[in-house]
Amino acid sequence: MNGMYLAYRCPLCGSEECGNDANAGWDVVTQSSVLLGAFDNEWCNACGDVRLEEFTITDPVRIAVIDQQRARLVVEGAAHDLLAAARDALAALCDQSTARRKGYDVLAHDRLLAAIALAEGRSAP
Rank of each mutant, 00 (worst) to 15 (best):
L90I: 11
I57Y: 04
A92Q: 05
I66K: 02
P60A: 10
T58D: 13
V65S: 04
C94N: 15
D21S: 14
L82Q: 05
Y5S: 01
L90Y: 11
T30R: 11
A24E: 14
V34S: 04
I116F: 03
C47V: 06
N41G: 10
V34C: 03
C94D: 15
A85K: 00
L73I: 10
T98H: 12
D88S: 14
A85F: 01
A24Y: 15
D40I: 12
D21K: 15
Q69F: 07
G3A: 05
A124G: 05
V34P: 01
D21G: 13
S33N: 11
L73N: 10
A89R: 08
F39H: 15
A24F: 15
I116A: 04
Q31I: 00
A64G: 14
C13D: 06
D88T: 06
V28C: 09
A86R: 10
S97K: 07
D49H: 14
L35K: 04
C94Y: 08
G103E: 04
D110M: 03
R87W: 06
L93V: 07
L107T: 10
C94K: 13
R70K: 12
S33W: 13
A117S: 04
A38I: 12
V74Q: 01
V34A: 03
G103T: 05
D21A: 15
V34T: 10
V28E: 12
C18G: 02
A117D: 06
N41W: 13
A119C: 03
L6A: 08
W43T: 06
D95Y: 05
L36W: 09
S97M: 03
R62S: 07
E54C: 12
C13W: 06
L83Y: 08
T30E: 13
S123Y: 02
A99Q: 02
G14W: 02
R62C: 03
L82F: 07
L12H: 12
L113Q: 09
Q69M: 09
N23T: 14
D49W: 14
N20H: 13
L90E: 12
D95A: 11
F55Y: 13
A24V: 14
A71E: 09
V75M: 10
G103S: 03
E54I: 12
C10M: 05
V34Y: 11
L93M: 12
A85E: 00
D21H: 15
N20T: 07
A7Y: 03
A71D: 10
Y8Q: 05
A92E: 04
R111A: 14
D49K: 15
Q31P: 00
H80D: 14
A114G: 03
Y8G: 00
P11Y: 02
E17N: 14
D95P: 05
L36Y: 08
L113W: 02
M4N: 12
A92C: 09
L52F: 04
P60G: 09
V75F: 06
L90W: 11
A64R: 12
L93D: 10
G19W: 05
D95T: 10
A91I: 09
R62E: 13
A84R: 12
Y8R: 07
F39E: 14
L118D: 02
V50N: 06
A46Q: 15
L12A: 12
N23D: 11
M4C: 08
G37C: 08
C10Y: 02
L83S: 09
A92V: 06
A79R: 10
M1G: 10
A115R: 00
E76H: 08
N23W: 11
D40E: 15
A86F: 03
E53G: 07
M1N: 08
A115F: 00
A114Y: 00
